[in-house]
Write a protein that binds this DNA or RNA. Structure first.
Lengths: 228, 228, 228, 228
DNA sequence: CATGAATGAGTCTTCATTCAT
DNA sequence: GATGAATGAAGACTCATTCAT
């Protein structure tokens, strides 16, 4: 990623307030253009003009179009990842059901807070540089989740990282389907409840029988799965 | 979707062997170019040349670039959807755990059989016409899954369609993450087992206690969820 | 024109009935396509298909697109020129007013009988080869008119050819304006009457005073003009 | 026409001197290419290059090829129409013979001043947008002429607009024939004199007999025509 | 520093023409 | 003879990027 950063990050460090404001304006403009025109028609000129400046100025802040888009994507992903990480830290040592609902509501809040933005950036994420960016952020979120679930009061995970990765992406899938219009709008109504149920059930399938009493038969319903 | 089809479907019906071969060559070439160059560089000229013909010939079969990409995407999605539908039909009246594993293995086989193709087409699915295509196919798969789970021998679903939509996308999420490189390659190793566990747990959270005997405490672990 | 003919005329002499019918079908189709699609979209493939044959067959009869269009134009122009020539022959030795009305009504009948055809062919006439074709036919009509007016019973023309050329084009102008939509449709209602008046007045301005009696003061209203 | 203008007018208002010069260069270049290559080969690239710039620059001033051609045509037509309008205003209240000669000489001066330009633009006038443009300008000229002849000191017109339309197009016809090469070059020598005679005779055929004395039998030579 | 005009390579798409079947 | 698939040159138009002002 380091070489990518070298090529794609802003030319200037945003030490000055003006730079920060300008960059922010560019990001907002980029998302608007992305939303209204689509990735292919999201041109540097259009973004600059919507941000109230000339193309030349845009190039003062980003070496090229890809760098701008990467920065916008990165900012979005960072926001999401930070929210998730913070949430995970707060749920340490809690039972998995708490973790599940906290994680789902945090993620949904972050992604559905600005659906247009989230949706628009999926296209950017699909381009050459985007996958690496997403991978990096996913790894970060997976680590946060893995660390969290490893502390669960009522479950034990043989491979927390794998479980975390599945958990994250099992939530990401339906959310993405909703944002990209692969599911009907009504789907949104039941989304949170169902995702919590999904995640809770998945995590609870790792519950330690001993912790809930000898007569309980829940944990390891399918012992074979425990190997994974 | 009908108007989209009108604009995007092949110009000639592939009744002749030659046409079929040519169209197949174009599809293969499109996927190769998509994989090696990315959506933005997947130009009609490049696809035609890789398919061993000139641009003009490509336009004899497709009215424009989008139509070609849509056709490739549609073919892929149809294959997947058909496999899923067939699988669902075969699992009617079985317990949810059977359904879960059948669904997961069928979906994985369809998607990971040709990972390059699957991956390449995600970008296409993000474009204007793609979302509608995906939505249509998703609906089809969701219906197949909903119909299947409604017959489950050991569970009752208040809203089979919603449960099916969540189930499908919860599986799609991790698979897509793997294909798009958002997860490490090692992830693949545990994918199937974990997805089966995820889906089984989710579906079993809807289990009817009465069906498995009075002493069983498994079903409806979290009764509150049963409302959804 | 001879070299043009060599390059643009049909490959086969239309001795066979089939050829004649085919060529006629092509001409009709060409005019239809010209009318509905415009010159730029009047392609060989489209014309052939509308004529119920394949492109290859079209090329059996015409060496290239320009030859086809030239032939269609030529046929149209020939029809008009023939009508005009015949009309002129019939008006020999009559007074100019008879000549004027006969000429106008013949020309209008020929041009406005199929307005779509006439209009469509103006575009063809504007292309490279068209001007020469038109010039040739104009010359023919001018000669016919000149020959006719030279026999007028009540006028004498110093330069019959020039007068004929002016006469022809003075009629062509308003007709073309109507066909090309440069004038409102209502214009058509008064067209014939006004053109007859125009032409009559023009030709009568050459009237020989002696021929109509000594007291008549009409002829040579403006004697200065008689020089031309 | 308004929607056409919206689509075909220049992108930038030529407020800056540079813009004006650039636009002028494009117009000149367009006419040159049109003249030397014909409408079909008058491509944006060729025009731009002849104007000493790249295609991209051309598109900075015109949204598409048609807009450029329309602008060139419009400029030409406006020049002609303005000259005609001014001329008409100056001939109010004069006898028709004065009006005829002024109109003819003004029109000839405007059209034959730059024959290449006039000729080249006939092709443009034939294209989709061109006809509307020409119609608009023709209407303007017809109105100016109608207003003028209505004030004639020695004639009365029942329908000045119709007479004006015929007058204009009767002059346009021969001029166009000359420019498009439908008439021999020698034709030009007698053109003005003959057109003046043509127009004078036509307009004088509407002369009020009373104005020129009771014994005069000229006016309304053919009383039937007076109805029109 | 900001501006935005200029550049020209690169896209999509069309079409006249040929030629194997 | 007829057919229509294949060709590829050419045209319209876009856009990332630069640089003179």
């Amino acid at each position: 990623m380091s070489d990518v950063r070298g090529a794609l990050s802003p030319r200037k460090s945003p030490v000055q307030a003006r730079s920060t404001a300008t960059i922010e304006a560019l990001h907002v403009a980029a998302i608007q253009v992305l939303t209204k025109e689509g990735l292919a028609r999201c041109t540097t000129t259009r973004v600059a003009h919507r941000a109230g400046m000339s193309v030349g100025s845009l190039y003062q802040y980003y070496p090229n179009r890809d760098a701008l888009l990467a920065a916008v994507l990165e900012q979005h992903l960072d926001t999401v990842a930070s929210a998730v990480s913070r949430c995970c830290r707060e749920q340490h040592d809690k039972p998995v059901s708490d973790m599940a609902s906290a994680l789902v509501s945090t993620f949904l809040a972050a992604k559905l807070g600005n659906p247009a933005e989230s949706k628009a950036l999926y296209a950017v994420a699909g381009e050459r540089g985007g996958a690496a960016l997403v991978a990096r952020v996913h790894t970060r979120m997976v680590e946060a989740i893995a660390t969290m679930i490893a502390t669960a009061s009522d479950a034990h995970f043989v491979s927390p990282t794998d479980t975390a990765a599945i958990s994250l992406n099992a939530v990401v899938g339906p959310v993405r389907a909703l944002l990209e219009g692969h599911a009907p709008p009504e789907f949104e109504a039941c989304l949170e409840v169902q995702l919590v149920r999904l995640l809770t059930a998945y995590l609870q399938s790792h519950c330690t029988p001993s912790k809930t009493g000898p007569t309980n038969t829940r944990g390891g319903r399918n012992p074979a799965l425990e190997r994974a």
